[in-house]
Design a protein around this nucleic acid. Sequence first.
RNA 1: GGUUCGGUAGCUCAGCUGGAUAGAGCAUCCGCCUUCUAAGCGGACGGUCGAGAGUUCGAAUCUCUCCCGAAUCACCA
Length: 566
Amino acid sequence: MEEKMDYKKKVAAALAPALNEYLTDTEIYEKIEIPKESKMGDYAFPTFTLAKVLRKAPQMIASELVEKIDQDQFEKVEVAGPYINFFLDKTAFGAEVLGTVLSQKAEYGQNDDGNQGNVPIDMSSPNIAKPISMGHLRSTVIGNSLSLIMSKNGYNPIKINHLGDWGTQFGKLITAYKLWGSEEEVKADPINKLLEYYVRFHKEDQEKPELDDIARDWFKKLEDGDEEAMNLWQWFREESLKSFKQIYDKLGITFDSYKGEAFYNDKMDEIVQILEDKGLLKESQGAQVVDLEKYNLNPALIKKTDGATLYITRDLAAALYRYRTYDFNQSLYVVGAEQTNHFKQLKAVLKEMGFDWSDDVHHIPFGLITLNGKKLSTRSGRVVLLDEVLNDAVSLAKKQINDKNPDLANADTVAKEVGVGAVIFHDLKNERTNSFDFNLEDVVRFEGETGPYVQYSRARAESILRKAGDVEEFAQLNITDPKAWDTLKALQDFPNIVKRAAAQYEPSVIAKYALGLAKAFNKYYANSKILADDEEKTARLALVKSVSIVLEESLRLLGVKAPDEM
RNA sequence: GGUUCGGUAGCUCAGCUGGAUAGAGCAUCCGCCUUCUAAGCGGACGGUCGAGAGUUCGAAUCUCUCCCGAAUCACCA
């Protein structure tokens, strides 16, 4: 199927007989480009490179070359200066694309490049007892979309929520809870109360440094498995997770594993042992480090002066655990760009340990969300709570529905899908690594290049299909209306887009594509009477149906719902 | 200071492996609902692609230098 739909190959084949004297088939194929505007054709072959070999002006080469080309299978082939422009047979092309989409439906664009290989994806990973902010949204939403994209490319993704459920902050939290907290309070509003205790601890320990000693003791007890400490820890974890899950539900995201930092407590000794056995550990200023000078990196700090392990030790244990558990094809970490250095170190240490699979470990960085140009920080109170943003977005969507479509049956459900969709889409539409300053109006915008625009485009398509009586059989698929051309070409491009999104680990590739397809379709919709009674009506409905399928699938790959009406 | 990433229209950003007059959205102004959802469509306005040099038939795209911004640079994660 893919071969059949590769029209560039057809162009290359047409050029080959006239050019094989100078260029190989692949060279020809690679030189073919897609013109910016469709009036310049669907494919173009520039002749500049031949000018040297042939010692002729490119324009002349083009006009001579075009004479030798078999033009039968194209609508036309014409010379435009130094370019040879190829125009495809639009009707045949369209019929082929529509036939493919309609027969494959949601499977359209699916490929088996991944060969069912496992791909654990480290994503979301919020800290226990802290609210989920817009910062976590990025990791969550990018990771989720990547899992869907990888799956569309034949991989088997495993979504891992590597919870921040261990560390000295739990000593502080327990201390604060014992001093000022109560069970009822926490149960009523776990995250906010726990955060409140934590913040109060940090305020009061400025003047009462003895609090830090108590906190240290509690963490020590926790590490030693003290029953009271463990029970409190367990309880904080559960309550936090409950409230995290409410947000994940709103986003429509699930996980395959919630193994967090604590899970690796008993798995770090082995890492230290391996490092020792391989003679990689060196003492430096009282600490144990792995020298990474040959990677042009700072030494990796494995054990602190007091013998305690660090973040990287835990991540090494997690990396090895994931390798053993999943025998992964690749292992992804959707973590902010500010941790790039850490992941370089992680990979380097794995390499030093002799694990050749370290090459399959990939950090997928993303840009920072700032507020008024400054980094978000829980302690300083500069937070944008995700839950509030989602709620704002949903109520704005509801208001919009009341204004524009007051009779809509399931208005509340649709408001959720549109509001949440707007937030997710906004996060995914630009390149991952771009940073952005948080602005509520931008995030919940419903017009222009937004999630709701794509949803709306598809809802209009669905509306037409309903009016047409939900046709399932399409008698014929030939469309001669040139206004449908851009939409048909966009539909045909989807399988390539799916591959590119996976190769670049970029949800924005899908988002941009969805916008482009929606835009092409809206233009068509505005200028053509789809339900007109003529012999091409079924073909037009086939186009509408195909657009709906591919838009829905694009949105699905982003983790955004596609309501039939809005 | 070292490393990494970025600097394209008033704002937010596209621009695939260098190619034909640099594109969208938002904002501003104007037009289009007695045609299928106006969350839409069309038009106008708007750019020395940070600066300079180089490679090339051709550079927003590749190389170098400089300017500006952000992240990061061992006992947090």
